[in-house]
Write a protein that binds this DNA or RNA. Structure first.
Lengths: 351, 351
DNA sequence: TTCAATTATGAGAGCGCTCCCATAATTATA
DNA sequence: TATAATTATGGGAGCGCTCTCATAATTGAA
């Protein structure tokens, strides 16, 4: 059933043994050179390298994986809950960060986008199949993802959750300090003198949604402000969600709004303009994420920056660390955020 | 250097041989059962299946790949040109379609997101490494992607381009008939009686941009209308690009606009509203893609539907066909589109 | 110059499958 | 019932690597 080998002995179908013969050394020596191991004489190493160079030899990934019990492939799972993969550009960006980090570390990224809850069942055995993945990244932080996480935990496969999961004591994850970041974002608005600061939150079944709201509340209460429930409206991390949330908020007459994501801030600002109000003069804004879209609009968005690139990098590095050093105690990494002051908060006008 | 096996002989680390022993048959028989091959007595098959079921056995992917010379993994390459991966939700959607199709066909999807032109060099040897991928999908249609495509072609790896590339005589690709689709979209506006139909095109270094503009021109000229260059403005498949393009267009006083993508249409409609004009009464709109966002806004977008799910499915199926039947003649698949009439074209008001 | 320590090299086994082929069991046909 | 055809099963080789271990070459110290 194997395809008939045509004319060619293509470069890529050469084996270690072939290279060894061409370089006049043994398979083992070539293997050492390929894997940059010591104990090869310099001239020999160079000779082998030359042969590899001219032939364009590439080691066979499957053979290497079988022999070394390492596939050099990481899995990334997007659970069904991450259907805003399509509505919040944050996810594509994060995905890019992860993909790039994998490249840099010479890992291949396998992508498991779970379309439906049933798909999760189907994907699970695939992910836990030996010889395919060295470790798994799960983009999560949603309440519905507990099951898949504990599945993965049971399978004893190195695992990093990207975003804090609901139960996290026994799993490694990476996140930013959402509470504190939001606290600072709202604090910034308070320092600028705004009196009626509203917020558009994320959904309450996500840790991100919960934490950012918590930071908002904390900022107000710690400085003795009263919480006005009418100033808190739930969004869903979509632009449209932000738009409608803002429409509701408008009746409570806020003078500033902290939106839990840039994309919601953009939707909300559109609602403000549609209502004939000006930003930041009538209503000031602070967003969250600092995606490129934050600067696309006329009014550049003041926002809490989290470096998605760094987020991706660190997730991958944590996972690789887990794979290579296999510690059993879960690691929790919290990345920094930084307030980026642009136009929409009104800070510049007040200087 | 191998990790010390702790207490467990986890289910997933069982081998074919173990299952054989447990079921009282040979390795070969288990292999036949696992791979759903004939020539196994029913009761034996059932016995083996039971053992597999209870042990949770999963064949080792690397071993299977090595022995069968098939990795059951497809690569998806997003060249650097697809940086609008982050600005046009079309790409995440398409990615989802592809990911789901891979799942359905029991392939794993490996994801190569090329961050920079230099990355392309780095990714190339990885992709052409034997034993890793059975075939490759390239999301393309951009002028800058010729190089990577011919690289892949040289490497003699089964290849499907998703979107028509600039040179396509020697490569398999899948696309929609963009010219005809746009022709129909614009024809729809003409039939509704609009006189000054403008267009916001895609960039001219993409086949999609070129073809959709071509369809626009064809629709006008075939019906004896004159082309007014002032009614043609270039966009870049981003919402912001659509917004600014529309601002330019406004001075030419169009009564209808065909936008080459939904996301640009949405940006453009925002510009129209910001200018105090109504949709569709002052300016009618037809978009292209029919992404979910088309229906999010208040004014539901009339648009040319291309099924991204089907697009993904068909790409994967074409690639699998190439892998399994390995024909040398390139296949070109053109999918259908369908005009979805909603509010923004004004058709409903006129009935 | 001699022997120990160190470094370089090669041979062999084995990773866990698939696939071919030989043989055993079963069924069909005469 | 005997023999041919068919179907079921098992054993062996091999996919292309890695990694351990034995041995050869080189260097250092006495």
């Amino acid at each position: 059933m194997r395809a008939v080998p045509e004319q060619e002995q293509t470069a890529a179908s050469l084996t270690l043994e072939d290279i060894a013969k061409l370089a006049g050394v043994s398979r083992s020596t070539v293997s050492r050179v390929v894997n940059e191991q010591p104990n090869v004489r310099n001239d020999v190493r160079q000779r082998v390298l030359d042969v590899i160079q001219t032939t364009g030899y590439q080691p066979n990934a499957a053979a290497r994986a079988l022999a070394s019990q390492r596939s050099w492939t990481l899995g990334m799972i997007l659970p069904h809950s991450v259907s805003f993969f399509f509505t919040d550009p944050y996810y594509p960006h994060l995905t890019k960060g992860i993909a790039q980090a994998c490249n840099q570390h010479d890992y291949t990224l396998a992508f498991f986008l779970v379309g439906s809850k049933e798909d999760e069942e189907k994907i699970f055995p695939r992910v836990s199949r030996r010889g395919l993945l060295d470790g798994v990244l799960v983009q999560s932080g949603h309440h519905g993802d507990q099951e898949i996480i504990s599945h993965l935990l049971d399978a004893n496969i190195p695992l990093v959750v990207v975003g804090r999961p609901f139960r996290y004591d026994n799993v490694s994850y990476i996140d930013i300090d959402n509470v504190n970041a939001s606290f600072n974002a709202v604090g910034h608005l308070m320092r600028l003198g705004y009196q009626r600061i509203g917020t558009i939150t994320g959904p309450p079944n996500s840790t991100v949604g919960i934490d950012r709201k918590k930071g908002y509340l904390k900022a107000l209460t710690e400085r003795g402000r009263e919480i006005d429930e009418a100033l808190i409206v739930e969004g869903d991390f979509t632009e449209t969600g932000g738009y409608y949330a803002m429409q509701k908020l408008l009746s409570s007459k806020p003078d500033a709004v902290f939106a839990a994501s840039d994309i919601m801030a953009i939707g909300a600002m559109r609602a403000v303009r549609d209502a004939g109000l000006a930003i930041p003069d009538d209503i000031a804004f602070v967003g969250f994420d600092d995606l490129p879209i934050a600067t696309f609009s006329d009014a550049k968005l003041t926002t809490m920056r989290q470096s998605v690139v760094e987020f991706g990098e660190k997730s991958v590095e944590l996972l690789i660390d887990l794979i290579e050093n296999g510690s059993q105690t879960p690691h929790h990494i919290i990345l920094d955020t930084e307030l980026v002051i642009r136009d929409t908060c009104g800070a510049k006008k007040r200087n």
